[in-house]
Amino acid sequence: MSHEAPPVPEGGSAPADAEPIVRARGLVKTHQADGVPVKAVRGVDLRVERGEFLAITGPSGAGKSTLLHLLGGLDRPDSGQIWLGDKRVDTYGEARWAVLRRRSIGVVFQFFNLISNLTVADNVELPALLAGHSTREARQARAELLADLGLEGRERSVPGELSGGEQQRVALARALVNHPSLLLADEPAGSLDSKGTREVLRLLSRYHERGQTIVMVTHDARLASAADRVIHLFDGRIVDEATFGKEPPRAEGVAGTIELKG
């Protein structure tokens, strides 16, 4: 399984590669709560660069998860546009989103969402098979990922036999099995103890270092501080942004952007 940085494009297609993985403009989403419309996301613009690790923080009800769900097509915006790479995707129907998620977007949830009556191996292989890979390819990809995630010997277990931390690692393997260009993580350590949290933190950092683009919603500042950039949502809007010094600094003095010393 290779998770290296994306290859340098051949001849003349450089601008396409410089394109961000995600662009969103003017996203608005209203939920119905007891028949009363509640604006969860009120006009969000977003850009996620290739290989970037973005954390989304903010209080409960600020719209963090809704925003993530919009980016993964698990929820549809009332208005606004979303591009994944060069494709405009907010106009996609359910079927096209399903294909996109299978091939290009991996999702990790707070409560793992594994299929409880399938083995660990089957949970991980299933999306590979659904994406059209052969049994042999799926098996090989699964074996490599489980080894990489320290889950060798757990192939025949069912999720209920695993600890929370182990289940989340299986979920991560499942999310990564088709080499998605984008990994979405919704409170990935939200139901884990501090050991499990450290584990998730270490693994996300590892895949990020190998070039994986990640967008993660979290309450946990330890997780957020592993990202390249943190945006803070409040009441459905992005109200602040912090960039940790890794890339060259943006324009000096841009409000909200600070560089990490040392």
Partner: peptide, 12 residues
């Protein structure tokens, strides 16, 4: 908040 996040990163 940005200051604390930076400190958190240093601690990590």
């Amino acid at each position: 908040r940005r200051h604390y996040l930076n400190t958190m990163r240093d601690l990590s």
